[in-house]
Structures are given as C-alpha cells and as structure tokens.
Simulated scan of single mutants.
Amino acid sequence: MKRVLIIGANGKIGKILSRKLKDEADFEPVAMLRKPEQASFFDDLGVERHVASIEGSVDEIAKIMKETDAVVFTAGSGGNTGHDKTLTVDLDGAVKSMEAARLTDVKRFIMVSALNADDRDLWAASGLEPYYIAKHYADFVLKTTDLDYTILRPGRLLDEPGTGMINITYPEKEDGVSREDVAGVIVQALKQKDSIGKIIAFNQGKTPLEKALSQG
C-alpha cells in the first residue's frame, strides 16, 4: 500500500481526495494540515494527519513526508488573501515541498496547477495575474527536478457533483470542472505510471477520466 501525503488536505479538493484514497485498496492518505483545529474531519475519517505549515521550513515538511511514497500538492492561499500569501503558499510552498521530496527520496509528485498557467496573454485579463504567475513558476521549477511529476491543470473549479467525465483535448472550450472530478483525476494519475512527466489540462467533458488520462 502506498502512502500519499496530501499537502493542502483541508481544502475542498484535499478533503474529497482524502475520502477517495481512503476507499482505495492500494493507497493510504496522509493529511498535512496547517492548524490543529482542522484535525476533526480527518480523525472522523480515520485518516492519519499531521500539523505543519508550508510557510515553515523545508525540514518541517520533510519530517512529515519521510514515511510516504507520493506527494499531492493541492494547497492554495485562497481568494481572500493578499499577493504575499500567493507567493509564500502557491509558489514558495510548492517549491519547498519539492525540496522536501528530494531530501526524503519521495519521487512521485503530483501538482494541482491551473488551466492557462503558461498563457501569459490571459493572465492580466483574468484579474488573477499573481495567482497564474505563482502557478506558472511552481510548475516550471517542478519540471526541472528529477521527480516523477504529473502536473494537473483543471479549469474553473466547481462545487457541483462530479460526473467522472472530462475533456483533455480541448479543455478551453468547456467551462469548469467539479472539484470531485479533479480529485478523481488525481487518483487516476497516481494509478497510471504513464502520466509521469506529463502536463494534463482538463475541464468537464464527455470522456471517462480514466480513459482520458490513459490517452493524455
């Protein structure tokens, strides 16, 4: 059984992913939380959890990562924080997590990024330019490492129930994707070795996500 550290586990995607991995025979989720008061959800679920901040030291992250086999980075500063948090969480937090993975010899690393993270022409128009800059450069750094990475780039995140169907061929033609389906894509990426070294952009669609990833 592979132990998967979820960084950003208390977020919406992180909680859904924790549930999904808990139900998988081949995976054991390990939640990394920022605050002790976030623990009750994971205790009730029966998921191992640890409190640490990605704004802390690399060693602090590595201590938790040491006994795991894979990392999913799905942390984010959120829409109600300043640009400083976007830098320290979405960018530097991601890079410190990569450094911790290399220190602990954890090779598998899945990054939850954002659709259009490489399209500078769209950043300013979106009103989210600092966010896209952070995602772009976190992805850039990850691609330069020797980690077995997969970069996932979902479109606009929705809270509606997942359909299990996505579009990776022309994701820009679809408007959004449920967080439940994003979590489902993460699970499939963990299962499919041929997703290693790939950037997978997606939105809602009509292709079963397992099939879509195997074709991506």
Rank of each mutant, 00 (worst) to 15 (best):
K2P: 03
K2T: 01
K2L: 01
I6A: 05
G8L: 01
A9P: 08
N10C: 03
N10K: 09
K12Y: 01
K12G: 02
I13T: 13
G14R: 07
G14H: 05
I16A: 01
S18K: 03
K20E: 00
L21S: 01
K22G: 03
D23M: 06
A25G: 01
A25E: 02
D26C: 03
E28Y: 10
P29F: 03
A31W: 02
M32V: 06
L33P: 06
L33K: 08
R34G: 00
K35R: 15
P36C: 10
P36I: 06
F41L: 09
D44T: 15
V47C: 12
E48R: 15
R49Q: 09
S53Q: 09
I54C: 07
E55K: 14
D59Y: 10
D59A: 14
D59F: 07
D59C: 10
A62F: 03
I64E: 03
I64N: 05
M65N: 13
E67M: 05
T68S: 08
T68H: 07
A70I: 06
A70H: 09
F73P: 03
T74L: 09
S77N: 11
G78Q: 04
G79M: 05
G79V: 02
N80L: 00
G82L: 01
L87H: 09
D92Q: 03
M98D: 00
M98R: 01
M98A: 00
A100K: 03
A101L: 03
A101S: 13
T104P: 08
T104Q: 11
D105C: 06
K107M: 04
R108E: 01
F109Y: 08
F109R: 04
M111Q: 13
A114H: 05
L115C: 04
N116R: 08
D118Q: 15
D118W: 15
D119W: 10
W123H: 14
W123E: 09
W123K: 13
Y131K: 14
Y131D: 10
Y132K: 15
Y132V: 11
A134P: 14
A134G: 12
Y137R: 11
A138M: 09
D139M: 08
V141R: 15
V141L: 14
K143R: 15
D146S: 12
Y149A: 04
Y149T: 06
T150D: 07
T150I: 07
P154I: 08
G155Q: 11
R156Q: 10
E160D: 12
P161M: 07
P161G: 08
G162M: 05
G164F: 00
I166L: 04
N167M: 06
N167H: 10
N167Q: 12
I168M: 05
T169Q: 12
Y170T: 11
E172Y: 11
K173T: 10
E174W: 07
D175E: 14
D175T: 14
G176Q: 09
G176M: 08
V177P: 05
V177C: 06
G184A: 12
G184F: 06
I186R: 11
I186S: 08
V187H: 02
Q188I: 00
L190C: 05
Q192I: 05
D194N: 14
I196C: 03
G197H: 02
G197Y: 01
A201Q: 14
F202L: 07
T207G: 01
T207L: 00
P208L: 00
P208E: 00
E210C: 05
E210K: 15
A212R: 11
G216M: 03
